[in-house]
């Protein structure tokens, strides 16, 4: 349990650094560390497949592309837009109201019962695959079609002149 608290602390710590870092590239690097702590969370929950997929897809692919884009457009401290004091003031008030709402709603909630997994080995590749391809076959296939259509759409948007493509 103490491992969980330590890793949870690290997750929150790094995610705060993501939004407080001045340099966008540093933000992305902190985001990578945040995702790495998520991977450890998955391993602690014995969800090995999810852990390694989070590692490969998020840390290894998506954030590489984020970093790639940021390096190309080369944002830095000087080009960061300066907000006026009025906007900052509004932001502080808005954030404070949001915090109060969240704390109030958390107080109103009852403590949920912890879910006990029937099968602690559910997260292993074999079991996960069997469940995905038996019980949840339709949603699984539909989501793959959704991803395919998103990909085709992105390619279509990226080509300026449809005749050239």
């Amino acid at each position: 349990m103490s491992t969980f608290y330590f890793i949870a602390f690290l997750s929150i710590f790094f995610s705060i650094l993501v939004i407080s870092a001045k340099n966008p590239v540093h933000s992305i690097l902190y985001l990578i560390l945040t995702f790495f702590t998520f991977t450890i969370h998955y391993i602690l929950m014995n969800a090995q497949f999810l852990a390694i997929v989070n590692f490969i897809v998020y840390m290894g692919a998506i954030l590489v592309l984020f970093l790639y884009t940021l390096m190309l457009i080369n944002l830095n401290k000087e080009s960061e837009p300066r907000k006026s004091n009025l906007v900052k003031f509004a932001g502080v008030i808005g954030g404070g109201c949001f915090l109060v709402t969240i704390v109030a709603s958390l107080k109103a909630l009852g403590v949920s019962h912890p879910v006990v997994l029937q099968d602690p080995n559910l997260g292993l590749v074999k079991n996960l695959g069997k469940i995905l391809f038996n019980e949840y076959l339709l949603p699984f296939e539909v989501s793959s079609i959704l991803l395919l259509s998103a990909m085709v759409g992105a390619v279509l948007l990226a080509t300026k002149d449809p005749k050239i493509a």
Binding site: Q48, F49, V53, M59, A61
Partner: peptide, 20 residues
């Protein structure tokens, strides 16, 4: 580990960060 190959893939995909 029973996700051995995927572990290798994870390490390979992480390798590019050193260069970047």
């Amino acid at each position: 580990i029973n996700v051995g190959i995927l572990y290798i893939f994870g390490v390979v995909s992480l390798g590019v960060y050193g260069v970047m």
